[in-house]
Amino acid sequence: MSEYVVVTGASRGLGLAICRDILDSGMSVVALSRTYSTELQKLVASKPELCHFVEADLADLEHIPALCKSIVKTFGRPYGLVNNAAVGHDGVLATMPNGVIDSLMRLNVQSPMLLSKYLLRSMLLNRKGRVINISSIIAKTGFNGLSVYAASKAALEGFSKSLAREVGKAGITVNCVAPGYMQTDMTGDLQGEKLASIKRRSPLGKLASVEDAAAMVSFLLSDKGSAITGTVMTVDAGSTA
């Protein structure tokens, strides 16, 4: 198999777009997801040599070491990891169930940390690699009803900066991509006047698409991104300008 990238949350939305873009660049993909969506099945069928699906529930932290071991055993040392899987439960903090806070932090923060920990090891031996964590502009701007989600994304940004310092000597870059509001299943509830207002206030008069954000991920994965590490690349059609 050619050099491959592990992409989490690959069944739909941004994860699926990232898989498509990586495959278009000629690299292989190991797509992790809880569900094997029809769209992902089609993508795998279109490039069966390059795209492989692995079923995984990443909120199940106990199984992440064994999952990583099995990925490396099956596909060899990974070139890159894109931590995209996340949940975005919204609701005011005062009434958010504690179990929801716990599960969000597990999937959005601890799971990327553990995947990075175990998949980085192969990259260390290869003396090259890429870790890309999908953040959100919410990490810095804040948004009513998304305090826990925002905290999880801010945590990923802090994690990425320090990890970049830790593994830079081994030729591995670690970055975040922070998309703005995109029309995906995760932001499906954001509609009507709120959505229109975000579009209106964006300098480009539109939302960034999942393809726009995926293109940034591909750039960071490419040789052209080799001098970029420890930073956050914002793709939001200018919303935070």
Partner: peptide, 22 residues
């Protein structure tokens, strides 16, 4: 410290175990 991380990675590939996790 990074060298030690690499040592653990190398031994995991050779021996098939990561005793610190297991």
């Amino acid at each position: 410290s990074l060298g030690y991380a690499m040592l653990v990675a190398q031994l995991e590939e050779e021996l098939g175990i990561d005793p610190f996790t297991e």
